[in-house]
Every structure is written in C-alpha cells, then in structure tokens.
Design a protein around this nucleic acid. Structure first.
Lengths: 346, 346
DNA sequence: CGCCAATGTGCAATCGTTTGCATATTCAGT
DNA sequence: ACTGAATATGCAAACGATTGCACATTGGCG
C-alpha cells in the first residue's frame, strides 16, 4: 500500500510532546484544554508532515466508521441515481462515505448484504429496498443501528421513513382521467411483494371508492416486475380478456411504456383511442413518444431528506425527537399520453 | 451501535484456549498448524456465539480494508450503473465493498475524493473519470495504490487500463455512412477535456483520412458537455453556418438526440433528409424515435474486466504480469436514424 | 533411555487512535 | 508564603484482530 503515512506518533516525535497531546490538539472539541501555542506548534507540524488521520484506527477506537450503507434494489433503475446523489450531497461534506448495495429485490441477498454492512460497522443505513415484511432490518434497528427507510415503511416499528405522497399522486391521476371523461379505467398494478406496487394498488382502490368510480376487478392486472415486458404482457391479458376500458393507469412509467407498445401493436392509438398514465417521471422518460402523462416524485430531495434524518438519528441522543414519518409532495404532469375519452369505443 | 459483538476473546474464553489460537483456527491458511479437534471446538464455539470478524480491527492490523474505491463522473449518467453492477459482480462475492464517488468531471472534486478514498485506506481504485492529464491518480499509483482506469488511459504511466475500441466504433460508423452514400459528414465532438470526447474526435479524423474522405473543418463542432442541450446548440451552429452536410456523426447518444430535435425543428427529417448517429447505446435509448443508429459499448463487461484486473493487481506480487491494455470490442447497431443519402439536398 | 526435531499452543507486540486518570505545573487567594 | 484549586500534559489502557517468536509437549529414532 502507500509508502508510509505520518501518524500521531510522528508528530509527537517532531514536536516533543506526547501523542495524546497531539491527539487533543488536533481535535477541535478537546483543543480547549491545551495551551494555544502548543496547539499552534502541533498544527504546524501536522501541516508540514501532511498528517491525515487514520480512519481505521479511529473507527476501531471509537466504533464510528463514518460510513453509511445504502440499500437499493438496483442501481440500473434510473430513479435511484438521483436519490443517491441527494444522499451524497448531505453526507459527503460531513465526511461520511456510503457503501451502496443492490438487492435485486431478493430477500436472501438483502439479508446477506445487510449483514455485510453491519460487519463493516456502518454507522447507519438508508434502506430503499425493504420488502413488505422485513425482520432483518427491524432487528438491526432494534440492535441499535440507525436506520431510515426510503419509499417504504417497516410496519409496527419506530423506524423513521421517508415516502412520497403516492396516495395523492394516484388520486390526482384518477381525477385527471375522470375529468377527461374516462370511467372504465384499468390499473396495471406493480408486484405485490414490493412496497410501491402494493401501496399504489391500495391507493387506486381507495381513490376510486372515494370518487365513487366503480372499478371492475377484471380491469386490475398485476405485473410481477416493474418493467416494459410485464407492462406489455399485462396489457395483452387485458385486451384478450375482452373487457372494455378507455384508460390505463399504470403503477409506474415502465409498465406504461410497455402498455403503449402493445396498444400500438393492436392498432390502438394512445391517447386518441386509449389514455395511458405512468408514475415516477423517471429520467429519460422524455425520450418516449407520446410524452407520458405521469406523476413526478422527488428523487433527489428524497435522498436529501432521508440522509438528514439519518444524521439526526446517528448523532442525537434518545432525547431528540426525530419525525417518524416524512411525506414528500408529488406533482401531476399532464402530457400527451392522456386525452379526452373517444366519442365511441369499439 | 450494536449491543455487543462477540470477539475472538469471547471465543477464547469459551473454549479455554488463547486468543491467538482462535485466530489461527479460524483462518483457513493458518488452520493447518492447529490440532483438528481444537479447530472443531473453536469453530463450533464461533458458530454458537455467532462470531463475526471485526473488519475494522482486521484492517488496522493488516492494512487491508477489503474496500475499493470507484471513481466515476456522475452516477446519473446511465452508462455507469451497468459498469458498477459489473464491478460489484466480481468484487462483492470476494468480500470487497466499494465506495462510489462522483467527480462531476471537476478536477478539484476528483482530487479531493481521491484523497478521501486514500484516507479510508481502500485497497484499490477503479477510476472511470480520469481527466486528460491527471497527476493525482498517477501519484497515487506511484505510492503503491492499486489502480485501474476505465474508458481512458493515463498517459506515460504503467497504470492498467480497460477501454472500448472506440477507434473501431467510429471507423465502422463512418464506413456505414459512406456506404449509404454520405460524403459531407459532420461531427459533433464531445468536450475536449474529457477522455472520450477527445479520443473520438481523433478517431474520426483518422478514420476519415484512412478512408480518404475529405472533412470540412467547419463541419466539426465541439460540445462543452455531453448532453442534449449541447447537441442542440451545436446543430444550430452547424445549420446557421450554411455549410452543407447530409449526415452527422455524434460523439455520443445524447448529443445525437439533441441534434435530431433541432433538425426536426428546422423541418429536416431524420433520416430521410439527414442521417444522425450516436455512440454508447445507452440504456433507455430505445425509447427515442427514430431509433438511433449507434455503437454499442460493453458496459457490464467493462466493469467485470476492470475489477478482475484490479484484483490481480491487489493480490499479485510484482512478478505477476498484468496486461497494461485491455480493449473491449464494440458493435455497430444499424437502426433507423441513418439512411441512404437523399437524392438532392437543398 | 535419551535427545532432537517436529508440532501445537501461548505470549506479547503491534496497527493508530482516543480517553480516563494521574501528575506536574501554574496561579490566585488569603 | 502557603494552600488549594485549576490547568496543562503525560501515562497507559483500551478497541479487536494478526503474527513472529518462545516454549512446551510429543514422538521417533538411535
């Protein structure tokens, strides 16, 4: 590895004081108990010798690694990079580094990777991939690890969580579609073992009930992954089922993209024949045509918020009052994939 | 932090042997010097007490953190997530964790983040964001840090590098365009302070020369960022310059997307009026219409390759022969954005 | 039966910090 | 000037592992 780094001992030798004095002189909170001039001398020496504290030794002694773990399903899902940048933007300036792990939404992987993070002694974890019931993360939190979940809460726990106002998003989208005259509205639901999939389906049902829209159970079809292929498959199922519909509210953008493709294959134009809506407003969505009507969720800000809460959690004593729930607002984006219901369908 | 983890000392106490014996019994390479039955006893105890080695202490003693740094320009650029997954796929099973940092292509940030990584004692670095001249990474390598660069080489150094065969990609693209009858071919070059920007421009010039295609210097216009806005701006410059061209070979996909937009604004259809090509085949590119003719570079595999080389570098003695250069093949993808040159232009 | 080598285990130092406690010095108050 | 704090520094023990070396035990061989 590197040639040889200068240590506290080197500085002690160079200045003729004890290593503990050097340590104190270099620590802003302890510095006050040291004569200013020897502090100056030590700092000068530290500067001259290009001293860099050894974080490993620090970590061993203090049990603080200045490292946090970030657990996500898959970094290649474009909604996560902005979240990570948001997290980084608050943690990195404070000297924290983050270790990012991808669970691929597999329970075993998630458990194992959480172990890995704990073994490495991370000071806290931001978890954006909790499954619906997740004992491992709950146990970790109970053992005293600082944890914040993102996009999802762990039920029956006091783990703080940051979520987007998905209910509101689904609700506004539904209102938008009804305003355009749609009544027979299908829902492409996401995987029900995933946070968002389940939440959005529930939100859809609730909103429909509140708005007194009758939902044909046959018009709700569930994807097993959040991707274009599943959006396509579900849409085919919908079409072959023979049930009539004029709009498809999809649980995320990728499902919507797959949906539109299959509609087109079947000679149905979006939006003039059938309206389709997405969710997330994921990056690069603007490449698609027609431009997708969707719900924008805050990605960067969600990262910032989660990281800020984690910080408070890690530093604060139990006295501090950390908000258990943070709900970030969403925004309806009306674009081209939704339009007034066609005069007559079929 | 966690309640209390069991340490070697706990196991020693439980089994009645010395802590050093425990250490050896648990280390596969040292195990042979211990009686099999005491090994068994110790392993049983370790199992029972749920022993997990403390990586921090290990790191302090051995100066190996089992951590690597990955330096990229920006994780929100979709070509990087697959690279990261590739890296992870080889490093994670071996017990390595990676710390990912984003430089935003800013020299100061890069230098600072490299410091951060060195401070944390990473065992090695995969650097996918080196600038054209980069003393900091060269110095780090000289100090004994294991370094592999990705997508770019540090000149005059023996730092191993993994690159895509960009020359070949540009060359094949040019050949493709000429085969379609294009002669007046413009180039939207990338930022010249960035690896890829400069390389691809050079490749373009070389290929043109080799194929005896005369390139009008006025038809080469340089972007200052690799994004759609710059692609748009450059295309406007090209159009207002009044120089004639029938195809635009862009240094990356995003420039090409911006280019096509501006052509469309000006009533020019791609590809029937003007052909446009990209580079990278970035994720989600398939959303765009017309589907872009581009050059696919290997992303996941590049990550795998770089990580494998880094591994050899970290573990091997100087005796090992590590390949200095690895060039990954690229692939021309003919899609819809390029076509035969129009009968007459303007 | 004795000696030496081989083998298995223990001892203790070490990695670079932090930090409670002891000690040495200074200084003010009376 | 003497006492008593207050203040500044040093000492040494941690943190949890690895590892060179010393030592003890065993067994083989002459």
């Amino acid at each position: 590895m590197q040639k040889k780094r200068t240590t506290l001992k080197d500085i002690a030798r160079a200045t003729g004081v004890h290593v503990s004095t050097v340590s104190r002189a270099l620590d802003p909170t302890e510095r006050k108990s040291i004569t200013p001039e020897v502090v100056a001398k030590i700092q000068a020496a530290a500067e001259r010798l290009d001293y860099r504290p050894n974080r490993i030794a620090f970590g061993l002694r203090t049990n603080r690694t200045m490292t946090v773990g970030v657990v996500i399903p898959d970094i290649t899902n474009p909604i996560f990079p902005p979240i990570l940048r948001g997290i980084e933007s608050v943690l990195e300036p404070l000297g924290y580094a983050s270790i990012i792990v991808n669970t691929d939404s597999e329970r075993e992987r998630e458990i194992r990777l959480l172990e890995v993070l704990r073994d490495r002694g991370v000071d806290g974890v931001i978890h954006a991939a909790v499954l619906r019931s997740d004992p491992s993360i709950a146990k970790a939190a109970q053992d005293g690890l600082s944890v914040v979940t993102l996009n999802r809460r762990v039920e029956n726990s006091n783990i703080p969580y940051v979520i987007n106002d998905e209910d509101m998003g689904i609700c506004e989208m539904l209102r938008h579609l009804t305003k355009l005259g749609h009544r027979r509205i299908a829902h492409l639901a996401g995987p029900q073992d995933l946070s968002t999939g389940q939440l959005r389906l529930a939100a859809f049902r609730n909103a429909a009930e509140r708005m007194s829209i009758e939902i044909d159970p046959q018009l709700i079809v569930t994807a097993i992954r959040f991707d274009e292929d599943e959006g396509a498959r579900c849409t085919r199922d919908l079409l072959t089922s023979g049930h009539d519909f004029t709009a498809v509210l999809c649980a995320n953008d990728r499902l919507a993209l797959g949906c539109i493709d299959v509609l087109r294959e079947n000679g149905l134009d979006c939006p003039s024949d059938i309206s389709v809506s997405g969710f997330n407003d994921m990056p690069f969505l603007q490449l698609a045509r027609p431009r997708l009507t969707t719900v924008r969720i805050q990605q960067y800000d969600a990262g910032i918020t989660a990281a800020s809460i984690l910080l408070r959690l890690m530093n604060a004593g139990a006295d501090d009052d950390i908000p258990l729930e943070t709900v970030l607002p969403v925004e309806l984006l009306e674009r081209e994939s939704t339009g007034p219901v066609a005069a007559q369908r079929r």
